[in-house]
Amino acid sequence: MCTLKLGRYVTFIFVCFAIIHSIALGSSYDIQPTFGCVISDHTWVQYSTYFFYPVLVGLLPIVIASSSSILAYRNVRHIVRRQLAIVRRKLDKQITAMVLMRVIAFVCLVSSYNAYRIYATNFPPSRSMPMAYAIGRLLQTILLSINNINYMISSYIFIIFSSRFRRQVEIVLVKKCWQRCKYWCCSINNRIESENNIEPCNS
Rank of each mutant, 00 (worst) to 15 (best):
T3P: 05
K5W: 09
R8T: 14
F12S: 15
I13N: 08
I13S: 02
C16V: 11
I20R: 00
I20Q: 06
S22D: 09
A24W: 07
A24N: 03
S28M: 01
Q32P: 01
T34G: 00
F35L: 08
F35V: 02
G36M: 01
V38H: 01
I39T: 05
H42V: 06
W44H: 06
W44D: 02
V45G: 01
Y47W: 07
S48L: 04
T49N: 04
F51I: 12
F51Y: 14
Y53H: 07
P54S: 11
V55F: 05
L56M: 10
P61V: 00
S69N: 05
L71Y: 02
Y73I: 10
R77N: 10
R77Q: 08
H78C: 13
I79T: 14
A85M: 08
A85K: 07
R88Y: 13
R89I: 08
R89G: 11
K93C: 15
M101R: 11
R102K: 12
V107E: 09
V107R: 03
V110K: 02
V110D: 01
S112I: 03
Y113A: 05
N114H: 08
Y116D: 08
I118K: 01
Y119W: 10
T121C: 03
S128N: 07
M129D: 13
P130K: 00
A132R: 03
I135T: 00
L138F: 09
S145C: 11
N148V: 04
I149Y: 03
M152Q: 02
M152D: 06
S154F: 03
S155E: 14
Y156V: 14
F158C: 12
F158I: 07
F161Q: 03
F161V: 11
R167L: 07
R167S: 10
I171D: 12
I171E: 14
V174T: 15
V174D: 11
V174E: 11
R180G: 07
R180P: 07
C186Y: 14
C186W: 14
S187R: 10
I188D: 10
I188V: 13
N190S: 13
N190F: 07
E195H: 15
N196P: 12
N196S: 12
I198R: 14
I198K: 14
C201G: 10
N202Q: 14
